[in-house]
């Protein structure tokens, strides 16, 4: 299975206690299952309100959690942010 880097941002970093982690997964759903198992329910609750990008693409416009992953892909998990 491909090795995938998962990066966390903003308030999520303090919830999960780290900036990034590496998982092996072939679909985004596998990544989410690992996060659920390793990070605990509070972090998972925050993640469920986050935008998720694979490299530079928002997975909402790919196949959601069914999106396939390949070696070297980076999954970005971004909590709601504002500015402008």
């Amino acid at each position: 299975m491909p090795e995938i880097k998962v990066k966390f941002y903003a308030l999520l970093r303090s919830k999960v206690g780290r900036d990034e982690m590496t998982v092996t997964a072939s679909r985004l759903k596998d990544v989410m299952n690992v996060l659920k198992r390793d990070l605990g329910p509070e972090a998972v609750k925050v993640i469920s309100s986050c935008h998720v990008y694979i490299n530079q693409d928002n997975v909402a416009f790919l196949k959601g959690e069914r999106t396939s992953l390949k070696e070297g892909d980076v999954v970005h998990i971004l909590p709601p942010t504002g500015g402008g």
């Binding site: 941002y9 903003a10 935008h51 971004l78 500015g83 402008g84």
Partner: peptide, 10 residues
């Protein structure tokens, strides 16, 4: 917490 700079990464 992050101000408008909170948008940079996104």
């Amino acid at each position: 917490k992050y101000g408008t700079a909170g948008l940079v990464n996104k």
